[in-house]
Structures are given as C-alpha cells and as structure tokens.
Simulated assay, not measured.
Amino acid sequence: MIDLLYIYIFVLAAFVGYEVISRVPVILHTPLMSGSNFVHGVVLVGSMWALAHASTPFQLVLGFLAVLLGAANAAGGYVVTERMLGMFAAKSDAKPAAKEA
C-alpha cells in the first residue's frame, strides 16, 4: 500500500513539474538553469556523503555512480549556462573565432 502511495506522489510530482517548466518564459530560462545548477551541487554533496558512509560493496558502487553522475550533471549544467549567457553577450564582447589552418 505504501509503495502505491510513493508511486502516486512520484507521478503527481512529475506531472506538476512538467506543467510548471513548460510554462516558463524563454527570458527566465537562464536564471532558472543557474538555480538548478545549485541544486545539482547539493545533490553532489549528498552523494559524496553517502559514498563516505557506504559499508557494503553494493553501496560503494551506487555511491560512486551517484558521485560520477552528479558531477557530470553539475558540470554539464554550468557549461550549458555559460553557452546560453554567451548568446546574450554584446557583439563587441564576443570572442573572435579562431582561424583554422
């Protein structure tokens, strides 16, 4: 019975999350990405804490994967945010393209 409750909460959260994100104006996307990068950093710290307190091999593998995927997610979010901010830079601030040999 409790498992069904967790599934219900997950489906409800997914639906509400989709509805909220789909209505975000384009102009707010970059600040929201920066905020979500903060959340990814918190997830990374939590996964490192879980890995530090792991005791079985299964927990160690899961903790390692959590740290690896959390770090990739946070780094990728910062790269995407940087590229998006570059799109809004003034033309005079843009770096010239490197000439290929």
Rank of each mutant, 00 (worst) to 15 (best):
R23P: 03
P31A: 14
T81Q: 02
P57N: 06
V45N: 03
I2Y: 03
L62V: 03
G17P: 01
D3Y: 12
W49M: 09
F10D: 06
V39H: 11
A72N: 02
A97I: 12
M84F: 11
V67P: 00
W49H: 02
A54Y: 00
F38T: 15
F38H: 13
M1P: 05
A72S: 04
F10T: 10
F88G: 08
L62Q: 05
Q59H: 02
V39Q: 11
T30I: 15
S36W: 01
V67A: 01
A71D: 00
I9H: 07
S55M: 13
A74Y: 01
N73A: 09
N37A: 15
L69M: 12
F38V: 15
F88Y: 08
V61P: 01
S36I: 09
E100I: 09
T30K: 05
V16K: 14
V45T: 12
L69I: 07
V11E: 08
T30C: 07
V16H: 12
E82K: 11
I21Q: 10
V79L: 09
S92N: 12
M87K: 10
L44E: 00
L28K: 12
G41A: 14
V79S: 06
L4M: 10
V26K: 15
G77T: 00
E19C: 09
W49L: 11
E82R: 09
E100V: 04
G76H: 02
P31S: 14
G86D: 03
L68T: 07
L68C: 10
F58Y: 06
E100R: 11
A72C: 06
F15E: 06
V43L: 13
G41V: 04
I2S: 12
L12H: 04
A52Q: 05
W49R: 08
E19I: 08
E100P: 01
S36Q: 12
L44G: 00
P96F: 04
I7F: 08
Y6Q: 15
G76M: 04
F64A: 11
A14S: 02
L51F: 11
T81P: 00
P96A: 14
Y18P: 00
A101K: 08
A72I: 03
V26F: 03
A66N: 13
S47V: 01
W49V: 10
R23Y: 06
I21V: 14
F10G: 03
S34M: 11
I21K: 12
A72L: 08
F58S: 08
G63T: 05
Y18W: 08
G46Q: 03
